[in-house]
Design a protein around this nucleic acid. Structure first.
Lengths: 144, 144
DNA sequence: CTGAATCCAAGTTGATACTG
DNA sequence: CAGTATCAACTTGGATTCAG
């Protein structure tokens, strides 16, 4: 990981006032858990993962090319890559049918379904607050 | 955006069987909304944004350097950048106190608080399913 | 203390071509 | 159809330096 800001001022002399201002209550989260959670969220919160998650939740089992067509803008490379990751994480199953032409079905696992449900709140928030964010951006950009 | 898979097979002749296999029900999401939602989620789902969001939710108003120390591994550049983005999106307020040395306070807006709440479900899911995901990865890696 | 600006290494992604 | 392989372009993020 990067050299954090942690040590940038550790060695410098600071006044009592500064010490007070910078004092922070200790985090009440287990650092080990926090690290793992961050890693996990970083993975699942990726753009394509979320879109595929929602897609499969909505439509059920789908084939490779179907997903590719449904997810706007995704390249076949990222599609393959994202599906592999999701399979590895246990979010979906990959079923190869031994026929020609090949047919591969993808479907969410219960774990995938539960993650989709957990993300639901974020989707709802986004839909509900789109205008708020747009307005905030406009105001911000209107200033310098 | 990239040339999607959308058109890769649009021009080729396909059998009725293929046509059936690839048929997908029309999406019931307004494409315009979907695009904006994706953009929004892509922004807020970013690693540092989420961590800062949780931090400010938990601790309230904080100064620039305090946040830098609390968010493990973040560089000063990313801290500045992320805070600016969040301010632009209306998630937090930035208050400059005209003193020397400078003092700048950051605090979540109601919009920021609501987003934090929306993300809560994801955090809970991540904590609860850490072991499931780890196990799934182990199984996946154990095969080829 | 709180930034802005620059440089650059490393990682990500997309386009393209090829395979069974 | 469902991938794999490769390479160039683009993006990202960290380190560093400087300023008010």
């Amino acid at each position: 990981m990067a050299k954090s800001l942690e040590n940038r001022f550790d060695a410098v002399e600071i006044s009592e006032a500064e010490r007070y201002l910078d004092a922070v209550p200790p985090s009440d989260i287990d650092p080990r858990v926090e690290r793992l959670v961050n890693q996990l969220i970083g993975r699942v919160a990726d753009k394509w993962t979320m879109l595929i998650l929602e897609l499969l939740e909505e439509r059920g089992t789908m084939r490779f090319t179907q997903i590719g067509r449904a997810v706007d803008g995704i390249s076949q490379k990222m599609l393959t890559q994202t599906l592999r990751q999701m399979e590895r994480d246990g979010l979906l199953t990959r079923t190869v049918h031994p026929v020609v032409p090949p047919r591969v079905d993808y479907a969410l696992t219960p774990l995938g379904n539960s993650l989709s449900a957990a993300f639901c709140g974020v989707w709802v928030w986004a839909e509900r607050n789109l205008d708020m964010v747009e307005a905030a951006r406009a105001r911000f950009d209107a200033r310098g």
